[in-house]
Every structure is written in C-alpha cells, then in structure tokens.
Design a protein around this nucleic acid. Structure first.
Lengths: 336, 336
DNA sequence: CCGGGTTGAGAGAGCGCTCTCACAGCAGAG
DNA sequence: CTCTGCTGTGAGAGCGCTCTCTCAACCCGG
C-alpha cells in the first residue's frame, strides 16, 4: 500500500549511481552526450530501483503531456452500441498513438455539461492536441481551440469555412460509383435514402446521388433518414408509396440499408430481382445480411489512423495539408 | 499561437485580486474557509483572466491525476468492429467518470509492446486507478498493480485466486433460465455451442448449461466456438453431424448464434419449429435477425458503470466488496 | 608548454500548484 | 482591559523534473 508512495525519484537514482540529477535525466531521456560507462551505471541504478519518471513533474517543465484527446460528439453515445463507426475510429486512432507512445484520452460530450468539460479540459493544456470525431452540424469548439494555438484535427469536412485541418473520405466518388453500378445494371427508377442534412456525410452522399443521376435521364426519388436502422425502414416505406415501381435504392448508410431490406421483405419485394439495394459504410455485418449487401466501403479504421497521424504532425510543428481525403470503393455483393 | 504560452497562473490571479496565491487556491478548490467578499473578488479575477489550473502542477503536489485507465485486452481489437461489447463497456465507464469529473485514458494491449507500455504507464502513477476489461485467460498485471497499492478493478471473475475486486454478470443464472425455457417448451435434444474455455464467460456459460441439464434426463451435446460468428456457424454444423435430431441449441454468444442460424438455414432447418435457438448477450442487432433472437440479456453498459463506480470507491479509500455480480435476464423472442 | 576548443558533468533555478504553519484580527469571557 | 480561542489570510517550502549555464578535464596544434 505505502510502497506506492516510496517511488524512487531522480534524486535517488543519482545518489545510487554517484552522479547528478541532470546526468540521470540525460540518460533517461536518451541524450547522446553522456559517456558510456556513466550511462550504463545510471541504467543499472534505474533498473535496481525500478525508477519510473513522474509524468506530472515532467509535464510541468516540458509543457507537454504526451497525451491527446479524442472527442466524440453527443450522438456517438446513442449510436454506440449498434454502429461500429466510432469504435473503429477509436481503434485506428489508438493504433497510431500507441506507435507514437502517446496516450489516448477519450471524451464524450454526451453528458450534461460535457461540452464545457471538454473545453475546460482541453484548454487546460491537459493534452497536447485534440481530435474531433465530429460529424454533426457546426461545432465551434474545434475552431476555438485552433485559434488558441491548440493542435486540432477533425474528422469529416466541416460545414462552412474552417481553418482546421480535416480528414474525410470521398463520399461523392463512392456514391457515384454505386449509382453508376445501378444504372449500368439497367435499373431505371433509382431512389435514395439520404442521411441527415445537417451532417456533411448526409449532404455529400445525397449530392453524389444527384450528380450521377443528372447524367442520365432518371429522375431522383428521395427520402431522408437519420442513419439508424429504424429510419431506414420507415424511409423505404415512404419511397415505395411515392413510387411503387422503383427498382433500385441507394441507401446512405448500411444500417439504414438493413432497415430498408426489412421493409422490402415485409412488402414482398425480392432483392435484388425486384429492387436492388446498395448501402454505404461496409460494416462487417453487411456481409451477413440476406442477401449480402452491396455497399460502398469507407476505410474507417484508416480514417482514425490518418486523423492521429495528421495531429501528431501538427504537434511536431510540421506543415499539414488542410484536407486529406481517403478513397472509397464499391463492394459488389448480392443485393445489387 | 503564443497565447497558449501566456496562460495566466495562480500568481497572476492573486495579483489582480489583491490576495495571496494560497487564497486563490482555496477559492478555486472550493475551500469553505474564505470570506465571501474575498471569494467573489477572486472569482472575478479568475473570470477576467480566463484562468484554468495547470493540471500537471496540481498533480505534482497532490499525487492525484484525476484520470483513470481502462485497459482493453488484445482480443478487443479483433472483435471491435463487430462486437458491441467493448464499446458498451467504454460507454458505461465513461458515463460514470464524467459524472465524477475524471478522465478516461484508453489503453489497448493489442500492439507490440503494448503490455509493457500499460505496465509502465500505470505504475508511473499517470492515473489514479486502472480498470481491466479483461476477459481472457490469466492476466498477471491486475494482481501486480494491486500489490503495488494501485487501485484496480477488473471486469469478469478472474480465473484462479485473485485479491482484485471484480464486477461480473450472473452467467450461470442466465444460462440456466435459458435452458429451462427450452426444457419447459418441450425440447428434448438440447445442444450448446460453448465459448472459449480459457475465458470465464465461456466456462461459466457451459457450466450453467450442464447444471440445468443435470436436473433433467437429457444428455449434453457440446461444441466449442470462440464467440465469433464464423465459429458459431462451424460449430452448428458439427452439432448437426453429432446429432441430426437435435431440436434446440443454447449458444453462448449472440454473434455465434447468428452464425448458427445461418447454418441452420442453409441446412433447411426451420427456426424455431425444427430447432429452437437461444443466444447470450442481447446485442441490439439480435432484435433484427430473422427470426428475432431469444437471448440472455447481460447489462453491459451497467457493467461498465459499476466497474467505474467500484474503482472510484477504491480510490476514495472506501471498502468495496470483493465481487459484484449483476443480474442477467432471459429475453424471449421468436427463435425459441 | 601554452592557449583555445571540445566534451562531459554538476549546480541551481524554476515549472505552477498545494498545504502546513504562523499569525493578525476580532469576539467573548473573566 | 487582558486573555483565550477562533477564523481567515499570507508566507514559504516543497512536489520531481528539465535545462541552461558554468566549469573541470582533456585534446590538439602551434
């Protein structure tokens, strides 16, 4: 119990090794300007005492904390249990940070006062940088922190002008490929279930659908969901009311696509014979639906990793591009 | 940019308010021994300068960091994208910690050297306590940290003797209810797909199955999977080879149950008419399978919350029970 | 054999905060 | 009016580390 309080300090190591604190510090931090015999003496002393540097003391003087915050938006919590998006982001970020020997501090703005807490915490220089897995509307916090000189990178192109560097995936390219695939396979009435129009992912995916249809003589048939399964089921019902003859639907998220499939089944439509369905995300689970879902793969894990990489660059004082856009890819399975 | 370096210190606030550093510190930390007029003068100064305490400096003297580590085992990463278990744990832990104004530091032992990193980091008193979402085999680290006087709580009853307090769910009770349900509905050949036998969750769920069958005259029919969908599909095939007449199966995880259902379908068995299927977990997605899955609900979010609560108690120096077991509950849907 | 340069180690000043201790001021008791 | 006992405030000593500055030791060329 009390052992914990008797942690050896630099001082103790220095005494044991018969050198000064400064020298121990040099060895511990890998300075090259220490002669070999002394270096190994210090190493031995460190080993013997089980010395581990005190992070707080180090931070106090270096002004670094070697940890970075990942802020998940309010909505993350709601979706968390069913949607592997945030878990994958976390996972990707974690991989890169581990490699850089940085720590990951997770913050959610879901609880009461969460937003303020995030602000307080991050501006307190508790962390060296902040990552926003922000996907909703206009969040002023990233810009604010950026202005204060805090390294910040956000996931997803921000709505409106923003000087904060971001990483996103090529929504439009992926969607266009999906719609083109439907056109190429001879579908004539291609509807879409769009995502929320206060999110870039929702906006861009709808834009991609419209852009690709514009080149053909097909008219657009649109319903809007909120990326949840339930909303997909409801939207599908609406679409079929609007146009009972539709023979294809591009759904802006896999979860909504699952909902849409359920509805189509209930109403006796065969997939893909009567209605072709294409999703967007390529969640693992989409390989196991019946039929397996044709969908647009976005590299979520890679998105997390790239996010972390960019932030580490900013922290290191390197120049980073204002935007990194990762490619998406159509994965053709049985549903279209 | 440089603003960040010009953060006001206690000193600055004290000067502006015309008091000493000590008094400002008292106000900031909510000590009751400060007269009202002075208190509000300090508050005003804090406000005006936008003062935010430096966490490192504070930690250095208090020996507290107000953050706790959540360690996810290697296997978490593999499962991460498809299995909402760890996300839910994270979510639950996060909720409690937010309420206590503590920070969550996520660590994964998945990367090379991860284990050592975790050890280094946590023993460096970087955090006030450590939570292990450990579910695999025998992990010496929790015990080690515990011995060093570090507050530790683990999720899942540890294999073997361990003085570390844990939180777990009532696997056996849940499984027995599930098997009883199958017995009560007249099933006569009840098989099981068990989880890995190096995990308590795997062991206990198999034990529950055996215990409940023992009371009847049914014999046990067992296959073993590793909690993944694929292993469930494979195990189901084995079971049907072993006993083509089986009319029910208790599957030790929802994901494996999904795999089992796929296999049953492929082999032309109707669910639940020919074979009844019961899972364990109650993942969201199990409501949407065809047919909706009867399963044992374990309160994962609550598990995360309880984990955090116990740890906070240990940190506060309170006595905690060596084990907390949360109830499980059979959720009857269409598959059995 | 001396001067200048180079290298390696130590001394010491903080980083920003908390907390103990000393003490000023004041009320009430004697 | 003095003494005791509060209460509220300030002074100052660190917490454990890094980093600059100083200086000793040694090398080499002239």
């Amino acid at each position: 119990m009390s052992q914990a309080h008797e942690r050896p300090t630099l001082e103790a190591v220095a005494r044991l090794a018969g050198v000064s604190r400064a020298t121990v510090s040099r060895v511990v931090n890998g300075s090259p300007k220490v002669a070999e015999p002394i270096r190994s003496a210090v190493r031995r002393a460190v080993e013997e005492l089980g010395y581990i540097p005190n992070a707080a003391a180090r931070s106090l003087v270096t002004q670094r904390t070697d940890s970075i915050a990942l802020v998940l938006p309010e909505s993350a919590s709601r979706v968390f249990s069913d949607d592997p998006f945030f878990p994958s982001i976390i996972h990707g970020v974690s991989q890169e940070l581990d490699a850089a020997d940085k720590q990951l501090v997770l913050m959610m703005t879901n609880t009461v006062g969460g937003y303020e807490r995030v602000e307080r915490y991050t501006t307190a220089r508790h962390v060296d940088g902040v990552l926003f897995a922000s996907t909703h509307g206009v969040d002023p916090l990233p810009g604010q922190l950026h202005r204060l000189g805090m390294p910040v990178v956000v996931s997803g192109r921000p709505l409106g002008r923003s000087p904060v560097p971001y990483v996103d995936v090529d929504h439009i390219g992926g969607v266009r490929a999906a719609v083109r695939h439907l056109l190429d396979s001879g579908r004539s009435r291609i509807a879409t279930i769009a995502g929320p129009q206060d999110m870039v992912a929702g906006i861009d995916r709808l834009a991609g659908y419209r852009a690709e249809l514009r080149g053909s003589d097909r008219r657009s048939i649109v319903a809007v969901g909120d990326f949840t399964r339930e909303s997909g089921a409801t939207a599908m019902r609406q679409l079929l009311e609007d146009d009972p003859q539709l023979d294809a639907v591009f759904v802006a998220s896999d979860l909504m696509a699952h909902g849409a499939i359920t509805t189509l089944r209930e109403l006796g439509r065969r997939i893909p014979e009567d209605v072709a369905v294409v999703g967007f995300d390529d969640f693992d689970i989409s390989r196991y639906t019946d039929p397996p879902l044709t969908t647009v793969r976005q590299p979520i894990l890679e998105l997390g990793r790239e996010l972390a990489r960019q932030l580490l660059r900013v922290i290191a004082g390197e120049e980073v591009p204002p935007a990194v856009v990762l490619p998406t890819e159509l994965v053709v399975r049985a549903s279209a």
